[in-house]
Amino acid sequence: MTDTQTQPQHAETDDARSDLISRVRTILGRRTEGRAVALLSVVVVITAITEPIVFTSYEVTLGRIALIGLVALGLTAVILMGELDLAVASTLAVSGVIMASFESITIGILAALGTGLLIGVVNAFFVIVVGINSFIATLGMLFFLRGAAFVISGEAPVRLANVDAGIAFGRPLIGPLSPRMLIFIAAFVMLHIFLTRVRAGREFYAVGGNREAAHDAGIPVTRRVFTGFMISGFVASLAGVINTLERTAADPTAGSAVLLASFAAAIIGGVLLNGGRGSVFGTLLGASSLGLLQVALTLSGVQVDVQNIVIGSVLLLAVITDPSSLRAAAGSMRALVRSRSGP
């Protein structure tokens, strides 16, 4: 008697449980940040055991995360649309040099940020109007701007005219948070709101997912691509301004190390290179794990060369463990096996 009564109840809770599990699974399946979470956990655990100083000197760590993260945030906007902006590193260098060449710090900052926007417009023009693949167009810009940074600076670091402003900029503003950290948080929040709550930002996903369909649905694809490249150019020049202020000098060779780390941050954070998937939150996780990793390596006395090997390997792993890459690899393997056993 009791059996027959409890049976359906059991089934009901089972149903509810499997329902919950399946719902959690769908939510998790929709998320793209898995690899970033995995890398972050591994890095946190290992550094907590071997190099706990990374967490006690959190100002350094947070600064590093903000440095990588800011450029990666701008990249996220472009990669979401299935494009790439390789010029960010040179944009950072050029805008820093331009800023330092002005006497007045306000005019310098405005000129630098304007340069970033302009570079974004030029990139987008070549990509969407002329129709060059963004990898090649921004690669050309990368070389062009690197040369421009050398020419403007006279092939030597430019000292900031107003050194006091730079020193003041490096001081913590609220609690332990330096202005750099606050700018990064503001940029993160703004971009997150833009991409999840604003219509224009939501359309970035549509443009990246299927450009033809987005165009047919009435989304102004050209304008969105321009917006994306302008965001990435602006954010990269912002990073250049912050760097120049903190170091009180602009280095024309700056940015090549940031390039690698920020790409790795965005890609490991789950921003799909083909576009349409990814989130700013994932980029933040990616930037955090790479920032922690870099600071931990530096503090344990690992040379820059070896750090480059580690970050390069992380980036290589990140692109080949992309879900679509793994699927492609499985398909290729099947094809290989079939061609072997075939006639």
Partner: peptide
């Protein structure tokens, strides 16, 4: 293998192998 088997983007793949390779050489 990274580009052909995993269909990863050649620019990103060779960018990372550049850093790995130059890092190894300088080290």
């Amino acid at each position: 293998v990274a580009v052909g088997v995993f269909k990863a983007n050649a620019v990103i793949v060779t960018l990372s192998t550049t850093f790995i390779g130059l890092g190894l050489l300088r080290w």
